[in-house]
Design a protein around this nucleic acid. Structure first.
Length: 570
RNA sequence: GCGCCUGUAGCUCAGCUGGAUAGAGCAACGGACUUCUAAUCCGUAGGUCGGUGGUUCGAGUCCACCCAGGCGCGCCA
């Protein structure tokens, strides 16, 4: 491609001038008057060459011979930029590769087939999932897919915190509601769960067990209720995530770490390091040795493990399973665990910085500018299901992904429910559906569109050149988003692309501007524009699918809105 | 008090690891328009990038200190 040819030519010239550069930055300037590609090498090499940037740039421009790369002009501009202008044909030469790669356009092999385990959601099975979990679900899934697209072998894992004190609270909450169902006086204890769903579980339990456990608060009775509640809640969480189109390769139960003896083994291994000591009746690990700000209790004075211990055991298990790259997606309210988990595994010989964390901030759902936090089922919070059933899975996923993880997320229900192009999801999906509308109108199957005999150099309009270059940027964008674990960059890219697509599409409104329409009479131009349309459709689809969002071939019109031109309310 | 994150247009946010005149989308204002079926399009305006100082050819981006907000600092998870 032109870009590579220019880069090689620049490298050759710079080497001759005595300033060999390995990584030449060659990018598309924001301002189209600055050409199609620009480089700042003259400025970065000013110091080593001991000359003024502009003088260096002038010399490079004189020495370069770029006819072969389809460069029609080189200019020196600003403080010492070199701006390149490409021929129409050179720009458009990116298109055939897009059609050829089709579903895999945007994939690359930088991960080199290495394994990585991505862990996310990892909720307590103590209630329905809330929007914060949803953000995490969408993020973990999108990051996993991005890694797959860049050549990683990804293992998706969900860690159920199904032991510990929260489970006790759950058991007592169900117990209390069960007693109430039987007409007994009982109250949910301090720290217990008040949501309506606890009553549902209690009722289901009564239906199954009858009144066999009336007034029975024996450990055995509570144990049965806990197990029953966890089974129902896990099933519900799995169903919610499944309907949210998030799947895992493996569900890892915290309780299994006790059953298999992994926790005990971890205690032994930690003791062997000599970093374990007793104090105040508890057993501590000297995590400060590895950068934690205080040492941590691993065994309480009653001999039971704190949550820290299974966390270490779990991450050692990941490492021992051969996952030497691990990414944990968690809410930023858990960032306090980062240093201690790393210190724990590091004390057992795992390299520093394992695992990697993507921490995200909370979600605030708003309607008409006010926070929405009431839920019938969960009581104190809105559930994820309530959210995606109201606005749809596509919109919900996109909204969760469109902000960088470490920033706060305001989920604006008014925008989410808007079906016009004000809603970025619909804007992108419309653009995609429009390309299909063109194919239908033209009577061609998308797969039958071939670039070979199309005169692509005729895609000479500014809007078309811009579109092609955006499409050509897609693989690099995917790579960058994967490296930075930043799906929001894909959202941003798609929205910008959709905007450019829609401008181009509307510019070709046959009633106004028939010569700009895709389906012009001129068969060559028509063929070239169909190739462009097909390329657009591929990139939009691949980008949406990457985020777990559908790319419809036609948009369904909501019958309720048919006769309501402005605001149908709800 | 200490640690992490955030602060960019009226609002919600991007900003390609230091580059050219800081960008989108809503909202506002001014014009067009009903299609290549599909809930519009084009244009305009809008900024001391939280503040101060520093690093250098060049800082929204890097460093230091301050201000504001969020989260965390348990023998809770």
């Amino acid at each position: 491609m032109a870009q590579e040819a220019i880069r090689r030519a620049l490298q050759a010239v710079l080497a001759e001038m005595g300033a060999p550069v390995e990584n030449i930055v060659l990018e598309r300037p924001r301002d189209p008057t600055h050409g199609d590609l620009a480089t700042n090498v003259a400025m970065t090499q000013a110091r080593t060459l001991g000359r003024a940037p502009r003088a260096i740039a002038e010399e490079i421009a004189r020495r370069l011979d770029l006819q072969a790369a389809g460069v029609t002009g080189v200019e020196v501009a600003g403080p010492g930029f070199l701006n390149f202008r490409l021929s129409h044909g050179s720009v458009a030469s990116a298109l055939p590769g897009i059609l050829e790669a089709d579903p895999s356009y945007g994939r690359s092999g930088t991960g080199a087939g290495e394994s990585v385990i991505v862990e996310w959601v990892s909720a307590n099975p103590t209630g329905p999932l809330h929007p914060g979990h949803g953000r995490q679900a969408a993020l973990g899934d999108a990051i996993s897919t991005l890694l797959e697209w860049t050549g990683w072998k990804v293992h998706r894992e969900y860690y159920y915190n199904d032991s510990g004190k929260q489970m006790e609270n759950l058991a007592w909450s169900v117990w209390a509601r069960y007693q109430q169902e039987l007409g007994e006086a009982a109250e949910i204890p301090e720290g217990g769960y008040q949501g309506e769903y606890v009553r549902e579980i209690a009722r289901a339990y009564r239906d199954e067990a009858g009144d066999a456990f009336r007034a029975d608060d024996s450990p055995a009775a509570l144990d049965r209720m806990r197990a029953f509640a966890v089974r129902l809640l896990r099933a519900e969480q799995d169903r919610d995530l499944g309907d949210f189109r998030v799947r895992f390769d493996h569900y890892f139960l915290e309780s299994s770490l006790y059953e298999t003896g992994a926790v005990e083994r971890t205690v032994e291994r930690l003791r062997e390091t000599g970093l374990v000591y007793e104090q105040d009746g508890a057993t501590w690990l000297k995590t400060t040795e590895f950068g934690d700000d205080k040492d941590r209790v691993m065994l309480r004075s009653d001999g039971t493990a704190t949550y820290f211990l299974p966390d270490v055991a779990y991450h050692m298990d990941k490492w021992d399973r051969g996952f030497h790259h691990a990414i944990n997606v968690q809410g930023s309210d858990h960032h306090g665990t980062v240093a201690r988990v790393r210190a724990g595994v590091q004390s057992l010989g795992v390299p520093a910085g394992y695992p990697e964390y993507v921490l995200h901030q909370m979600v605030r759902v708003e309607r008409e500018g006010r926070e929405l936090k009431f839920s019938k089922r969960a009581g104190s919070y809105l559930t994820l299901r309530e959210l995606f059933e109201e606005v749809g899975v596509d919109v919900t996923r996109y909204f969760f992904l469109m902000r960088k993880p470490e920033g706060h997320l305001v989920f604006d229900l008014d925008v989410a429910l808007d079906h016009s192009e004000k809603n970025p999801v619909y804007k992108i999906q419309y653009a995609h559906a429009r390309m299909h509308a063109i194919f239908r109108k033209a009577g061609v199957e998308p797969l039958a569109i071939r670039p070979q005999d199309a005169p692509l150099a005729r895609l000479s309009h500014e809007l078309e050149r811009d579109l092609v270059q955006r499409l050509a940027d897609f693989p690099q964008l995917v790579e960058k988003s994967a490296e930075l674990r930043a799906p929001h960059l894909v959202c941003d890219y798609l929205e910008q692309l959709a905007g450019a697509v829609n401008s181009w599409y509307h510019a070709g409104n046959p009633s106004r501007n028939p010569e700009m329409a895709v389906l012009v009479d001129d068969p060559g131009l028509r063929q070239a524009r169909l190739v462009l349309s097909r390329s657009i459709q591929i990139v939009l689809r691949n980008g949406l699918n990457l985020l777990g969002i559908t790319a419809p071939e036609r948009m369904e019109r909501d019958p309720d809105l048919e006769d309501e031109p402005s605001d149908a309310g709800s």
